[in-house]
Amino acid sequence: MKNADGLESLLRDLFRSQGLSVLATQREGQPFTNLVAFAATDDLKHLAFATTRATRKYANLAADSQVAMLVDNRRNQISDFENAAAVTAIGKAEEARGEHRDRLLEIYLSKHPHLKGFATSPNCALMKVTVEKYDIVRRFQHVVELRMKP
């Protein structure tokens, strides 16, 4: 991969093909993970997911906004070691509001139209993750880091 463009298109393809991501949050030293339906903005600077405000992840994020999100395309077969890619996004999460929320919601629902009822219910927050960097792992051990410009 000779340039960042190649990496970015790899990320876009992966984010299009995968519906779910593993979200990692933490509180008082205790890590916590969830599967969340996610979407990414085309410039890759933001990831979005929806959660009701009564969840543990929401509480964790209210206390500490630092998150990691894992997206991968493993098929749970031996060939994953050859073919699978895993991407960890590192960044900060906050609840999206105003125009940001409208734009993100459109992106989110165009990828997950079946979640419209959930994502737009009164107690559901649309979370915006501002990505600082991506760690991209391919072929088991090949690791490259992509820093996102603010």
Binding site: K2, A4, L7, Q141, V143, V144, E145, R147
Partner: peptide, 14 residues
């Protein structure tokens, strides 16, 4: 060089 000013770097190479 291709990536002289690029915003990506290697962390682990195989």
């Amino acid at each position: 060089k291709d990536n002289a000013k690029a915003n990506f770097k290697a962390r682990q190479l195989v």
